[in-house]
Structure formats: C-alpha cells, structure tokens
C-alpha cells in the first residue's frame, strides 16, 4: 500500500487459546508500548501455507482475535500471525506455533443435573458442545469429537464427609441405597484417554435425599 514503516518491537506471546474448540488468537502488546498500537492478523492452513488476512481483525487495538470460524475444521492444523503498527512504525509478523484444534483445545467440565428420591440420587451429565458459528447451527457434542470420552463422578456425603468416585462411559448414574434426609454433593470431570485431555471438575451440585416414605 506504499506506506513507509520503520521498525517497532514485536507483539509478544502470540498463541491460540482454545476452549471447546472456540479458538481465539491472543497476544501481548510490544514491550514498552502504551495505547495507540494497532494490529493486523492473518492465518494459514498447514500444508497449504497461503496466508489469509482476517478483515475483522485489521487495524484493531485489542489484543485478541477470534479465529474459531477459520479454524473450525479440526482435521486441519493452522498457524496465525500478528503485526503491530504505531506512529508510522511496524513490527515483524509474529507467528504462533502450529495449532491442532483436536489436541490443543481445553474442555469445559460437563453440565451436571441431580435429582433425588428418599434413598437414591440420579445424576445426568452433559458434555459441552463444540463451538459453533451461530446458535441456529446444528450442535456438535464433544462426545462426537472424542468417542473415547468418559466421566469421573465424585459423590460427597455431607454428613459423613466421605467421598466416592465413579468412572462411567454413559452419561447417567443412579446411586441407590442412600440415607434419607442426607445432603449429597456431586461434581464431575470429563476424561479423554487419547489424545490426553481432561476437563477440570465441575462445581459441586448438592441435593438432599427425601424423608423415608416407609417411616
């Protein structure tokens, strides 16, 4: 474009941050620069190599750019790159490492819903969905992306303070023969063996068993 640019320090720590395959490019401003720095972003598919500019992230002053749409095919791998501009100066293009959406994403904990009777609790787990462009788009569960996905479930008896663990492959679990009128707290984690991916444990969902009907 004929613009003349002197050199500016490079953006730092350019990397993808991905959760449930929502793939966002993040970076830090060049050292010592305050406000006013603008950025441009481009990305490429590994093996194709042609750099493609991201128009929505041209001359932006924020330090992130959502590339989920451009990197949604998780059978491909990607690079992204950022360049900084300030007062007629510009930095080099700074690239990420090669990004593999399948192995480099983090997975949220499952959703947990709990119900109870007088002597049992029923737990239903729902794996998070893969990121999608818009709400109308068909949902893809991470269960479909990672067929070997399992759940680790922790059940805490609030009265005895004893915690039990269950490892299950399907998404429901009934724990029978519990004590009536007792509070139980449930938390669950997703566990994928290969590639090695574990979510954190969900927050605890507590519920009390009901009064004993026979009494």
């Amino acid at each position: 474009s004929g613009e003349l640019y002197c050199s500016l320090l490079n953006p730092r720590n350019v990397r993808f941050e991905s959760i449930n395959m929502k793939n966002v490019l993040h970076w830090s401003a060049p050292e010592g620069t305050g406000n006013g720095v603008l950025y441009r972003v481009k990305y490429s598919v590994y093996g194709v190599g042609k750099w493609i500019r991201k128009p929505e992230c041209r001359n932006i002053n924020r330090t992130w750019c959502d590339l989920s749409s451009e990197t949604s095919d998780y059978e491909e791998q990607y690079y992204a790159s950022v360049k900084a501009f300030l007062n007629g100066m510009s930095s080099d293009w700074v690239e990420t490492t090669r990004f593999n959406p399948l192995t480099d994403t983090k997975i949220d904990p499952p959703m947990v819903s709990v119900s109870s009777t007088d002597k049992s609790i029923s737990i239903i787990l729902t794996a998070p969905e893969k990121w999608k462009r818009n709400p109308k788009e068909e949902s893809v569960s991470l269960l479909q992306v990672y067929p070997g996905l399992q759940y680790n479930v922790s059940v805490l008896n609030k009265k005895t303070k004893k915690r039990w663990f269950f490892s299950i492959s399907n998404h429901t679990l009934v724990v029978p023969w519990l004590e009536p009128e007792t509070a139980y707290c449930v938390s669950a984690q997703i566990h994928v063996t290969t590639p090695i991916l574990d979510s954190g444990f969900s927050k605890e969902y507590c519920i009390a068993t009901l009064k004993d009907k026979t009494k």
């Binding site: 680790n152 039990w164 663990f165 490892s167 724990v175 023969w177 566990h191």
Partner: peptide, 14 residues
C-alpha cells in the same frame, strides 16, 4: 476394571 485410582472407588451396593 478400575483405571482411575484417584480415591475411594465405588464398586456396588450390598
């Protein structure tokens, strides 16, 4: 078959 030994593993009801 127990693969995760993080803590007390539930086997069954008695």
């Amino acid at each position: 078959v127990v693969k995760e030994v993080s803590s007390v593993v539930h086997l069954d009801t008695m």
